[in-house]
Design a protein around this nucleic acid. Structure first.
Lengths: 358, 358
DNA sequence: GCGCTTTCGGAAAGCGCTTTCCTGGACTAG
DNA sequence: CTAGTCCAGGAAAGCGCTTTCCGAAAGCGC
């Protein structure tokens, strides 16, 4: 059995309340009394019981982080950044993942609620907003990702897609591309829709419009299917911008099966700059979202609301940035030749453990 | 403020204790009384306060999962499997990551201890064993990964490397390889050492011995550096088995920079079968560790110890299996030609956010 | 040196739950 | 009809902490 506060009090020859006050800095205590307490704490390796503490406070030192899937390569850095921020302020993180499953989401929300988290960062746009409303109704601060506007107890972090996408489009145009296609994420996904708008707008800004727009799941298999549709059309584009890196990877794989070389015959770009995007062949030209910052910012956005400083949320914005690699090059000169697919290439599993839906 | 048990009791016109007993099934209650209670629970959407519960029980329904880094692609499936298992038995998971940082580890352990977890699965071999002893001394059940033997409160899950490695070596030999090199993980890492032994033993079983053994960090940059050392030697091997997939990916990248084609000029194999290993070019021939099972088994191993059924730990074993893909082929016929590295290839960051140290 | 304020330690209630102990009533047996 | 036996449900203590309130001692001005 670990030591309790009573043990510390006895050891330091003070009362229970004094120990608590010293530990929490909640009222002035004579220096040598405080010293005695601290000594006792150290001597006994005393650790306050967090459950008792939370019960007594009837509010916790917990903040939740809700992601869709742990296995999604988009999240790890966010988790780290968030936790770092939380720890720095003496908060603890409760990590929940929904796996895009309503039962699991339900359970996660209940858990969050019952644990008395002070705030929750919802780093997934594929999450049910009415469930979120339940949290807010319970007085829990929220921070969303690409949802607006800020309101009471709700902050919002907007990703400035236009910045990175602007650079990307300029990059493609400088390479000589004039026919650019888009494989975007599912239209039902807020983030994917916003990204697609940014892409179209950037093209329009240069007097272009997308030669084709295809929708795809944010996954490798989706990208493979989508690119087949793109190149099957007559006069396919010389460059395709994908809604995330996984789509792009799937596209590259499928193209290889079709005998189309990337970037020689067609340029492909990703989005997110997940860790593996520099490992695939060719390394992906993509746009980076500063994900560690995103996690840290998420906590920063939560903090004023949960520490009672300012209940009203605020808007945050994070930039994006082009990361040029090897999957883009000057456009091909002749027409695109496809090899009749013989299905001898890499099998791409239909259901991947690591999707990319965020 | 959420409803409390008192509210439920009032609503159901029974006493507090009856509610508790009904909820926990801890003594016989007349059917209609129980019904009334359950109705009240549903009507109020009552959720017990976990902190109060844990305080009262002075033991929690928590099990810890300790991993080294969230960002490590080795862990996501393990986390999922473990959580699944825990939830099924009504336990909750506390996820901690050490980031291979002693301060963070210390904090994680303290946290686990203070939260009163009943057991901890330590799914990282790069973790300080004396710290683990502290947990065990506190009566917390442990399950390790590739550490033996089982003892009081300590179970162990052994990965049967020999199975998959045996298949892998046979695969290489059938392709015609006779000179096989090894790039293993750091010798200081239990798991890496065990894997290396399995590789050597499998080769020996076929009358071969490794033509060269190089040690590397379990990371992409380590693999790149290691393969350079391997091919720099005279008469380099025609196939190289790597200690994990990241090493293999680094090796493939570095070889490409050197103008060496994989698998045409040299065969490279990985280990772990992380998600991305089928996405890199060429898709990696590797050996799969059933990681979701591993996570689930970790909880299963913990369960008898924490439920008081059996304090003594047990030994578990999980198989491994060859996953043949495209990074292996018949050996080259002529000598290995290197292009003088012009450093124009992909830059491989020295410090990756996602290492592979487990 | 007296009455005032200030300072700081301690007692005690309460957070929401579990669990032991007890009691009042319904039943059974003689 | 009475004594003994069950059985369902309630009262209350306690888990380890926070926080309010109280009071003793010290400090101060006059």
């Amino acid at each position: 059995m670990p030591y309790t506060m009573k043990d510390v009090a006895r050891h330091a020859r003070v009362s229970l309340s004094t120990v608590s006050h010293v530990l929490n800095n909640t009222r002035y205590t004579a220096p040598d009394t405080a010293q005695r307490v601290m000594r006792a704490v150290r001597d006994l390796h005393y650790q306050p019981n967090p459950h008792a503490r939370r019960l007594a406070l009837s509010r916790s030192d917990l903040v939740g982080l809700l992601v869709s899937e742990i296995a999604n390569p988009f999240f790890p850095e966010i988790i780290n950044g968030f936790q770092q921020g939380a720890w720095q302020q003496g908060y603890d993180m409760l990590l929940s993942h929904t796996e895009n499953d309503s039962e699991r989401t339900e359970r996660a929300i209940r858990n969050l609620l019952a644990s008395g988290v002070r705030g929750v960062a919802v780093m997934s746009s594929a999450v049910d907003l009415t469930a979120m409303e339940r949290l807010r109704a319970a007085g829990i601060a929220l921070v969303f990702y690409n949802l607006g506007p800020a309101q009471r107890l709700v902050s919002n972090i907007r990703i400035d897609y236009s910045l990175g996408i602007g650079q990307l489009v300029r990059h493609l145009i400088e390479l000589g591309h004039r026919k650019v296609g888009i494989i975007s994420g599912p239209a039902s996904n807020r983030t994917a829709a916003a990204l697609q708008r940014a892409m179209v707008k950037a093209l329009t800004g240069h007097g272009l419009s997308p030669s084709i727009v295809v929708e795809s799941k944010h996954r490798v298999d989706g990208g493979a299917a989508a690119i087949r549709a793109v190149v099957a059309g007559e006069n396919p584009p010389s460059a395709v911008m994908c809604g995330n890196d996984l789509i792009a990877m799937g596209a590259v794989s499928a193209l290889e099966e079709l005998g189309v070389r990337v970037p020689k015959n067609i340029s492909i770009t990703g989005f997110d700059d997940i860790f593996f995007s520099h490992l695939v062949r060719p390394p992906l030209t993509t746009v980076r979202i500063p994900r560690e910052d995103l996690g840290r910012t998420a906590f920063e956005a939560l903090y004023p609301m949960i520490s009672g400083r300012r209940r009203k949320g605020t808007e945050w914005e994070l930039p994006t940035e082009l990361v040029p690699r090897k999957s883009t090059a000057a456009p091909r000169t002749g027409p695109l030749r496809l090899r009749r697919s013989d299905f001898s290439g890499t099998k791409i599993p239909q259901k991947n453990s690591a999707g990319g839906e965020v």
